[in-house]
Computed example of a mutant assay.
Amino acid sequence: MRSLLHILLALMVAAAAPAGADEPLKVTAIRAATIEFNRRMGLTGEIAARETLSAAFPTGGRITSISVNDGDRVEDGAELARIDRVQQEQALRSAKAQLAAASAELTAARDNEARQSQLFERGATTRATRSAATDRLAAAAARQAQAEAELNQAESALEDTVLLAPNSGTVIKRLAEPGQIVGAAQPVLQLALGDRYEAVFNVPEAVLNFGTAAHAPPPITLSPLDRPNVTVSGTVREVSPLVDPASGTVKVKVAMAHPLTGLSYGDAVRGGTEQTDGSGIALPWSALTATSQGPAVWVVDKADSTVSLRQIAVSRYTSDSILVESGLDEGEIVVSLGAQLLYPGRVVRYEEPAQ
Rank of each mutant, 00 (worst) to 15 (best):
L283M: 10
R40E: 11
A157E: 12
D135N: 09
R227Y: 10
Q118S: 13
M1E: 06
N69D: 13
S233I: 09
P24Q: 11
A282F: 05
L337G: 03
L4D: 04
N69F: 09
A268F: 15
S247P: 01
T107D: 15
L99S: 04
A145W: 02
T306Y: 06
A15T: 00
P218N: 05
L337Q: 09
N69Y: 05
Q275L: 14
L119S: 13
R310Y: 15
Y343P: 02
R310H: 14
A255N: 04
V314N: 01
G42T: 14
Q144E: 14
L341A: 10
T34V: 15
G272A: 05
V230Y: 03
G45L: 03
T261P: 09
I35G: 08
A257G: 04
V334P: 00
V335S: 04
T161D: 04
K26G: 02
A140W: 01
D320A: 08
A303R: 13
A290Y: 15
Q144N: 06
Y343Q: 00
E238C: 11
E155A: 15
A19Y: 05
I30Y: 03
R227D: 13
E23P: 04
P295C: 11
Q340A: 09
T59E: 12
K96W: 08
A213I: 12
T291Q: 14
E148G: 10
P58H: 02
L283Q: 02
E332I: 13
R122D: 14
V348E: 01
T289D: 15
P218T: 00
V299D: 00
S264M: 10
D70Q: 08
Y317D: 00
E238T: 14
G71R: 02
L164D: 02
K302V: 05
E159L: 06
R270Y: 15
P284I: 11
L193V: 14
F120G: 13
A303F: 05
A109F: 02
Q98M: 05
Q293N: 13
T306C: 11
R93P: 00
A19S: 08
A313C: 00
Q355N: 03
A290H: 12
S240L: 04
G77L: 01
L189S: 05
I281N: 01
V13K: 01
V207Y: 04
R310Q: 13
V269C: 07
M256D: 13
Y343D: 00
G278E: 14
V348H: 03
A17Y: 00
A154D: 10
S292N: 04
P284Q: 08
L53A: 09
V74L: 12
T249V: 14
